[in-house]
Design a protein around this nucleic acid. Structure first.
Length: 300
RNA sequence: GGUGCCAUAGCUCAGUUGGUAGAGCAACGGACUGAAAAUCCGUGUGUCCCUGGUUCAAUUCCAGGUGGCACCA
């Protein structure tokens, strides 16, 4: 029998975790989190890690598996998930993956091209150059290293330019030549379940969840990691806004309002990304029966 | 009940010496291959409260109405 990965995706706060537990229980299997921030063990409240009771019900993978000090990325995630699945599929026919990190989901479903690991020293040098000389400097460098990518790149986006440059410098090849634009073959079947709500309803849920996080002690959690604020892992909604408050740049209410807004913006970006994926079957989060029925119809 | 002020975008407001309007915030659309909860690009979405009058033309002027606020009774 062909093994199956059931992917539950959707905007933040829509109710993915709850449904995933139901699915995992129904199919007697385990859950892999596809959330780029829940992997960090220092973060719980602000990343909406499921409560301990839920984690007890079903085994979860890649939650609190790393530290904010670790360099983690989508490619590493792809490798980690494939290893977990390899192990899991020896015993189970299905597995559930749930989370909203778009690139991470695609890394598992489509695969990432083989590129070199980032060299921390080179990266910080390039960042320093960018800060001192501006984006024009990055553009000129890229134009020399990879004229083709330069012609199609988003020339206003420093991260994109910088990454292409570092890949060229490390490999001695052009970034273009390493981008295959091909889906990787997977040995398992993938079923994508998308959860969504009417926009106003979703925003209400997001706003309410932020208030709940504050009640549960998000401020204290953020204060705990405040000294590490420069780590990329802490460039995260729910923390960066509170850091600004701790710095005295805004007041508390303003910071909380910004968390709400930035969470809404994040949800929108997620929906934009998912919209173009034709493989997703969309449901409302409470349609458990319909979803199970849909999955079973795909399994036969 | 009387007098005065106000009514313009989802919100707070600006403006048009009469030629159908614009800021901030919010909102909306898009991109995305190893930092992705990141990063970047784009978009005013409007019965200018209603009805009538004056006028070639009214969101703007006039009258009445409705609603809100303030003060006086």
């Amino acid at each position: 029998m062909k093994k199956t990965l059931i992917v539950v995706l959707g905007p933040t706060g829509v109710g993915k975790s709850k449904l995933s537990i139901k699915l995992a229980q129904y199919f007697r299997t385990e859950i892999i989190s596809s959330d780029s921030r829940q992997v960090y063990s220092e973060l719980s409240i602000g990343t909406a890690v499921p409560p301990e009771v839920d984690l007890q019900k079903v085994k979860h993978h890649l939650i609190h598996s790393h530290s904010v000090h670790d360099d983690y990325n989508a490619s590493q995630f792809e490798k980690d998930v494939l290893a977990i699945l390899d192990h899991l599929f020896r015993e189970k026919d299905t597995a559930v993956m749930t989370g909203g990190s778009m690139l991470y989901i695609d890394a598992v479903c489509h695969g990432m091209d083989r590129l070199p690991d980032a060299d921390p020293e080179l990266r910080s040098r390039l960042i320093r150059d960018f800060n001192e000389k501006g984006i024009e400097h990055l553009r000129l460098q890229l134009k020399k290293l990879d004229p083709h990518y330069y012609s199609v790149a988003d020339l206003k986006n420093p991260k994109r330019l910088l990454h292409a440059i570092e890949v060229c410098l490390i490999t001695g090849k052009t970034y273009t030549s390493l981008r295959t634009n091909q889906k990787k073959e997977r040995l398992f079947r993938i079923i994508k379940i998308g959860l969504n709500l009417e926009r106003g309803e979703l925003y209400e849920r997001i706003n309410r969840r932020v208030d709940q996080m504050i009640e549960e002690g998000l401020e204290q959690e953020a204060r705990h990691v405040y000294p590490l604020r420069n780590l990329n892992s802490l460039n995260t909604v729910g923390y960066k806004e509170l850091f600004a408050y701790f710095d005295g740049e805004t007041d508390r209410d303003k910071a909380i309002e910004l968390i709400r807004r930035n969470s809404r913006h994040y949800a929108r970006r997620q929906l934009t990304w998912f919209r173009r994926d034709q493989d997703i079957a969309w449901f409302r989060p409470e349609q458990e029966k319909e979803i199970i029925h849909y999955v079973e119809s795909k399994l036969t």
